[in-house]
Every structure is written in C-alpha cells, then in structure tokens.
C-alpha cells in the first residue's frame, strides 16, 4: 500500500531524513519509535504532504501512485490521514462544520453526493461514542481551547469520520490518561480493516499493548536503524535506545 524508498528530506538547508525505506502492506500495523528529534514527525508530515519539507531524493508510492506528486488534499481524498502530534487550533470554524466540509469534499472527489447537516449529524454521533466525546464539542471551534487529551481524541474522531485507508498517528498517545489511551486505542482497533493500514509513532510500549504492531521500527538520526516484531518494543522499553545507537555497546 505504501512504499517509501531511500527517502531523503530537509527543511530549509537542514537535512532531516537521510535514507528511509519502509514497506507497509494492507492490514498491517507498523510502529515507529525513536529518540526526540530523530525525524518521526517529519516523516509523518511528508506522507501527509506538508509543503514545508523538501524531498531531495527517494520516492514514496501509495497504492501504485507517486504520492509526492499529489497535493495534501488529494492525498487525503485518496485515503491518507495524519493524526497530528500538535493538532492545530482554528478559531471561528466549528468542529461540526469542519468535519462535514472534509467529509463532503472527500465524497465529492469520489463522485459521491454530499450529505446534508442532519444526515451528517447522525453519522458523527455514532463516531462520538467510539471516542467517548461530548457532543457539545462539535459546536466549539476546532481544537480551540481544547485540553491536550481532547485534541488527541478529536484527531481520532476525525479519523473515524473520514475512514482513511492509511492512518498515520503521530504520538496520539502522548498526554492521554490511561482511560483515554484505552479509548483512543479501541477507536483505532475498531476502524481496523484488512484493507487498511496504520502507522503509529509512539514513545511508549504502553500503547502497543492495545494496538498490537506487526512491525516495529526504530528511527534515529534520520534513518531506520532497526526493524523487528512487537518484541522489539519491549526490548526498547527495558533498555532504551543507547544500545542501538552506540555499536560499541552491542553485546555488553
């Protein structure tokens, strides 16, 4: 579904990604872990189409198309979704309006008819339950004044409404209390299909107890320095990253 090959990218003059390769197939869950500043969010944002990063070499193909050729909105319309590490506040636009605008534009792109506000409300109410969110949040401005945890839940609500094929969750677990973590994870699991794939960026093994990954990758210094199964996450939890970063430490 997603094939990243030898991706190099920079922000301004600063090289951040230095040769990333990653294959994600339908039905799979991938976890990306790694120290702060290693480039995880940069990778996630590049997949979503952030215009602030320049891909200097390498490629990303998604469902057989050159993803880098598409605008951010075209990617979303084809089923790519990024849950932001830092969701953006948009004062003046209600959550309900925003969700419906997004939902309808994606439908329009697929040649489907737009849904009216009443129909849409039915659909959203069901999804609200999934992430245990108060319906009153729909009538507040997007993320404006939301608590950290509320913003993360709101990302999952958007994901539930837009039903993407490829979801990239960038530290959606950070700042969540243990109940919220379970709710968010259940939300992700409930949306899982054999035709979908999920990439979760996280610092914590805890989340991976709920969202069981098929593959775990360690990103450091702009490269994937280790890939493995779900047991790799346990190892990282116990030992940290040092043993991977310093070759001299291996075998100690």
């Amino acid at each position: 579904m997603l094939r990243i090959s030898d991706l190099h990218a920079s922000a301004g003059d600063k090289p951040i990604l230095k040769g990333i390769s990653l294959d994600v197939r339908a039905g799979e869950v991938h976890a990306i872990m790694g120290p702060n500043g290693s480039g995880k969010s940069t990778l996630a944002q590049i997949i979503a189409g952030h215009p602030g990063y320049e891909v200097t070499s390498g490629s990303i193909s998604y469902e057989g198309e050159d993803l880098l050729d598409l605008d951010a909105e075209e990617r979303a319309q084809r089923g790519v979704f990024l849950a932001f590490q830092y969701p953006v506040e948009i004062p003046g636009v209600t959550n309900a309006y925003f969700l419906r605008a997004a939902y309808n534009e994606i439908r329009k792109a697929h040649g489907e008819e737009e849904v009216d506000p009443i129909e849409f409300l039915d659909l959203v109410e069901e999804k609200l339950k999934l992430v245990d969110m108060d319906p009153a949040m729909l009538h507040r401005s997007v993320n404006a004044g939301f608590s950290g945890g509320e913003k993360k839940r709101n990302e999952i609500l958007q994901m539930a409404v837009l039903a993407p094929k490829l979801a990239v969750l960038d530290e959606t677990d950070s700042g969540l209390d243990i109940d919220a973590l379970r709710i968010v994870a259940n939300g992700v699991n409930a949306l899982k299909r054999p035709t979908n794939a999920t990439v979760v960026v996280t610092h914590y093994q805890r989340l991976l107890d709920y969202i069981i990954p098929d593959h775990v990758h360690v990103l450091a210094g702009g490269r994937i320095i280790r890939s493995g199964g779900k047991e790799l996450a346990h190892e990282l939890e116990a030992k940290g990253y040092d043993w991977l970063l310093e070759p001299a430490g291996v075998g100690a």
């Binding site: 189409g49 909105e73 979303a76 003046g92």
Partner: peptide, 25 residues
C-alpha cells in the same frame, strides 16, 4: 492551518475561504 485543513481533504480554495471566514466570524 491551511495544511491542517487540506490534510483532511479540504481543497486549497475552500481552506482559504474557511479560514478567511473564520477571521470574520
């Protein structure tokens, strides 16, 4: 903010209109 809206499938034109409208709201 434009990127956030576009990343949800909202076209560039609508994203600008929406943010402009939000400014006036």
């Amino acid at each position: 903010a434009l990127f956030y809206l576009k990343s949800r499938g909202i076209s560039a034109v609508s994203a600008r209109a929406l943010l402009t409208y939000a400014f006036a709201a």
